[in-house]
């Protein structure tokens, strides 16, 4: 325990780096996936193409993707951009399917009703379609958030900072306590992120509290998750 207090400022710096590396993939993943998910929902060609690409992307082990990134982006091996880009791709791979499922389960009658009330496509998307698809997209974002926070630790294997550093350093020094601090820290960050997303979801979509959305395909997507 004394190790933790002696190194508190170092650990805190790693926590901040970890957070800084985790947030961009989650946000970028969400921003990219929602329109792509809409295209997959709206157009048959879009569904086939996008979901196949997402599936293939998700198949590639993340460490391999992180290592291949410098070749694809032309960056340096130690550039944190590699990690962020790789994890963003993962987030998109997971979320496109969830977003497509979320738009699919919005009742067509509701959309017809909105059209009948004079909503144009743009307004209908923002005021009817997206809010109704929201709860499932939020659920998908929670999954992506947890797995991203956990995957950021892999960056340490290729020399990047973050809580994963405690894993590699603790292994080299044969010091399990340090590794334990890394594990607990990672899980805590994931839990706090999860809580924040739930709260944002409740604030933005108060109706999802009363109506529980039960969607089979979504439940499956949620079970099939973290890919190291």
């Amino acid at each position: 325990m004394s190790w933790l207090f002696e190194n508190l400022s170092d650990v805190w710096a790693l926590v901040l780096t970890h957070v800084a590396l985790s947030v961009p993939p989650i946000l970028l993943g969400l921003i990219i996936s929602v329109p792509l998910g809409w295209v997959a929902h709206r157009y048959r060609w879009g569904r086939g193409t996008l979901l196949t690409i997402a599936g293939l992307l998700y198949t590639i082990p993340s460490l391999a993707l992180i290592i291949a990134m410098p070749t694809i982006l032309g960056t340096q091996i130690l550039d944190p951009i590699n990690l962020i880009a790789a994890l963003t791709l993962y987030a998109v791979a997971l979320l496109v399917r969830t977003a497509a499922d979320a738009f699919d389960q919005v009742s067509p009658q509701v959309l017809d009703a909105a059209t009948a009330l004079g909503y144009g496509p743009w307004r209908r998307f923002w005021q009817v379609q997206l809010p109704l698809a929201g709860p499932i997209i939020i659920a998908g974002t929670r999954v992506v958030s947890s797995s991203t926070v956990s995957l950021v630790t892999l960056g340490a294997l290729v020399g990047m900072s973050g809580l994963g550093y405690l894993f590699t350093d603790g292994t080299q020094r044969s010091f399990p306590f340090e590794i334990g601090v890394g594990i607990v820290g990672t899980v805590l960050i994931a839990l706090i992120f999860d809580l924040i997303i739930v709260l944002i979801g409740k604030a933005l979509l108060p109706w999802s509290r009363t109506r529980r959305v039960r969607n089979k395909t979504n439940a499956e997507t949620l079970e099939v998750t973290t890919n190291a």
């Binding site: 999954v143 947890s146 797995s147 926070v149 956990s150 630790t153 892999l154 340490a156 294997l157 809580l163 994963g164 405690l166 894993f167 590699t168 603790g170 292994t171 044969s174 010091f175 399990p176 590794i179 334990g180 890394g182 594990i183 990672t186 899980v187 994931a190 839990l191 999860d194 949620l222 079970e223 998750t225 973290t226 190291a228």
Partner: peptide
């Protein structure tokens, strides 16, 4: 179970068991 394990960093668990 699947929810709890999702946030668990596998690399950390692996080296922890190996070292501990």
């Amino acid at each position: 179970l699947s929810g709890a394990l999702r946030a668990m960093p596998t690399l950390g668990l692996l080296v922890f068991i190996a070292v501990q």
